[in-house]
Amino acid sequence: MLIDWFTVGAQALNFIILVWLLRRFLYKPILHAVDAREELIAKELAEANAKKAEAKKERDDFERKNVEIDQQRAGLLSKATTDAKAERQQLLDEARKAADALSAKRQQALQEDASNLNQALRRRTEQEVFAIARKALTDLAGISLEGRMTGVFIDRLHAMDAKAKATLADCVKAASEPAVVRSAFALPTEQRAAIQMALEEAFSTQVRVRFETAPDLVSGIELATKGQKLAWSIADYLSSLEKGVGELLKEKARPGAKAALAGQPGEPEEKNP
C-alpha cells in the first residue's frame, strides 16, 4: 500500500505546524520589514519633494529679489547720475560766477589804480608845472608868478571872441550879485585893480568884483558870474596831459595790446645763410 494513513495525518499536522512556523518567523517579519522600508522610502521621497519644492520657492524668491535689487540699483544709479550732473552744473555755474566776480573786481581794482595813478600824476604834474613855471617866470621876468598869471588872465579876457565876450558881458550886467574872481592865493591890490580895469574895459561897463581865495584851484584865476565862467589855470594845460595818460593806462589794461604790438612787422628777421 503506497499510502500510510498515519503518515498522512502526521504530514498534514507537520505541514500545518510548518505553516504556523513560517508565518511566525518568515512571512510576517519579512513583509513587515518590506512594508517599513517602503514606508521609509515613500517618506524620504515625500521629504525630498517637499525640500525640492521649498528650494524651488526659495530660488524663485531669490531671483525675484535679485531682479528687484537690480531695478533698485539701476534706479539709484540713474538718480545719482542725474544728481551728479545737476551738482556739476551748479558747481560750474558757481565757479563761473565767482570767476566773473573776481574778474570784475580785478577790473575795478585796475581801474581804481589807474584812476589813483591818474590823479597822482595830475597833481604832481600840476605841482611840477606850477613850480617850473613859477621858477621860470621868476627867473626870466623878475615878477611874481601871480603877476604873470593875472596878465595871462587879462590877455585871455581880451582874446575872447566877440560872441563869448558879449554873452559874458550880458551876464555880468544882469547879475545882481558882484562877479566873483577866485584865485588860489590872495591877489595884491595892484593886480586886483588891473583885473577890475581889464574887466571894465572888456565889457565896457562898471563891473562890481569880489575877490575870493580858493586853495583847491592850486594855481590859476577864474571869473564866475551867474552861471558863466572864465578861467585860466594849469588844469587847462594838464587836461590834455591827463587825457593822454588815461589813454595809455587803458591800453595797458588791455592784455592783448602788447601781444599785438609784438607781432608787428619791422622786427628783425632771421636770415638763413
Partner: peptide, 24 residues
C-alpha cells in the same frame, strides 16, 4: 526528513529574521 526540512526552514528563517533591518 519532513522534520529535518521543517527545522531547516524554521531555524533558517528565525536566524535571518531576528535581526531585520528596515532601512535601505
Amino acid at each position: 526528513f519532513t522534520w529535518a526540512l521543517m527545522l531547516v526552514l524554521a531555524v533558517g528563517s528565525w536566524l535571518v529574521t531576528r535581526r531585520l533591518s528596515t532601512d535601505l
